[in-house]
Design a protein around this nucleic acid. Sequence first.
DNA 1: CCTTGATCGTAGTGATCACTACAGCTAGTT
DNA 2: AACTAGCTGTAGTGATCACTACGATCAAGG
Lengths: 177, 177
Amino acid sequence: MGYRHTREELLQGAVDAALEDGLHRLTFGRLATRLGVTDRAIVYYFPSKDDLVTQVLTVLGDRLVGVLADAVSGGARDHRDLVARAWPVLARPQVDPLFALYFEAVGLATAGAEPYRSLAAPLVAGWVDWFATVLVGTPAVRRREAEAALALVDGLLLLRQLAGPAAANRAAKVLVG
Amino acid sequence: MGYRHTREELLQGAVDAALEDGLHRLTFGRLATRLGVTDRAIVYYFPSKDDLVTQVLTVLGDRLVGVLADAVSGGARDHRDLVARAWPVLARPQVDPLFALYFEAVGLATAGAEPYRSLAAPLVAGWVDWFATVLVGTPAVRRREAEAALALVDGLLLLRQLAGPAAANRAAKVLVG
DNA sequence: CCTTGATCGTAGTGATCACTACAGCTAGTT
DNA sequence: AACTAGCTGTAGTGATCACTACGATCAAGG
């Protein structure tokens, strides 16, 4: 099957490139140069740019879920409890590039750019669902608390990206103490 | 001075175009077509793309400050009090496009794209400073509360963009309700 | 009227974009 | 050994990008 490059290799390289350079610099040409192939090799596996972006963001989403799985173990009482326990893991410097990419994709989604717009809804729904499974209470309460937790996490992570780790940690202490 | 178009007219048109189409579709060519001029007329006033983007985002920043000025009147006790009073104004549908553009710019900033990256810091600093002036307490406390309020507001507004007004309002009720 | 400078259309630059036609190569199957 | 299916290079498509050289046009001052 694998001749010189497998699909997984190229996808992995694309994710790495996106993490380093940002989605706005993820192009067939740049990626091909980076991986030492021609853009034709990439187009073979990912027939359109939207396909490539979709696959990359899917991998990104999976990795984010992985980070969350590390961050939240079990039965949180409410959004405050959940975020208080998750924050130390979410605030690790290693995952910063992941969230930088997340916010870039989310920004393009709010601007109505495809395919980001179509991908944003399931991605956000995934976060809420995951948070909900960790919380206790009736389904309605768990959903409300999960949405609140998501707003808190996004706000803190965005503050971390824009104002630095120190500001985000101060805000986290104030908000979920 | 003003021949056919003034600088203000073109800048106004650029802001409108960005609000409608997003920053990723703000190009000399598109804007020129939209305004019924050639791109040369735009380049005359804004010698580089970065100049144009910088000016547009400056206007955007001013409008956001205007929205905040409407949202927060005086002496808030803490971040919770501040956000509780500001949210009804920030959640008005009319200002949604403004925040969509804000998140697009912020997303590009987190990805390291210029000139967004350079513009993000003063923009965020402006928000924090504004919030701090509304809060009471010692400078250190006011700054901490302002940062927390910014995280809350950004988180709620982002939730609004991604999951809709209903989810954001539910989360706001939980967080500062 | 003549000059001067501000304004902006005409035309075109090279770069990069996503994407394609086509042919050639390789690895595994028969 | 022939065939097939998978893979990749060569070359080039038209579109769009930011940006420029140059000249025509206009308003206003002397």
